[in-house]
């Protein structure tokens, strides 16, 4: 039987911070290993930041709803929002940032999807009516 919990918060930077902390606290309570918890926190924060900054960009801030299912060998985190869809309704490729240029041209952003892809075992995105649902999967325990 999978352990399940859910929470939701308004899509602002400060509410996102406390929402992510609340999710991480619950995951540790249900014995997600510490090593894995770090990866989950980084990927979850990037995914939620994307919702706050892009899905609800220029519109009224709606809710971010998070549902976690912990199975014996896998953690699934679903992040739902009622904002704009991803471009072309598809997951961005998440290429690594180009660091080859001079200091003046170093990127100050665009690391988010790359980090999400690096830290998850798989990813799934669906546009369901007026809602987005992004699912992040993590192997447990770490391989």
């Amino acid at each position: 039987m999978a352990e399940i919990f859910a929470c939701s918060f308004t899509a602002t930077e400060l509410d996102a911070r406390s929402g992510i902390s609340a999710v991480m606290e619950r995951l540790r309570e249900i014995d997600l290993p510490d090593e894995r918890a770090g990866d989950v926190q980084i990927a979850l924060a990037e995914a939620v930041n994307n919702v706050v900054e892009h899905a609800y960009a220029g519109t009224e801030k709606g809710d971010v709803r998070i549902k976690c299912n912990l199975y014996p060998q896998e953690l699934r985190i679903q992040i739902c929002d009622a904002g704009f869809p991803l471009t072309d309704c598809a997951l961005p490729p998440g290429e690594p940032a180009d660091l080859s240029g001079p200091i003046e041209t170093l990127p100050e952003g665009g690391f988010g999807w790359f980090l999400i892809r690096e830290l998850t075992s798989r990813l799934h995105y669906e546009r369901l009516g007026r809602n987005n649902r992004l699912s992040l999967y993590f192997q447990v325990p770490p391989t």
Binding site: I42, A45, E46, P107, E108, F111, L115
Partner: peptide
């Protein structure tokens, strides 16, 4: 204890604003 890509970007920006 924690940094996200926005925080990373801010450190890069802080480095760039120092100049060469």
């Amino acid at each position: 204890q924690f940094i996200d890509s926005s925080g990373l970007g801010a450190i890069v920006a802080a480095m760039k604003q120092l100049g060469r």
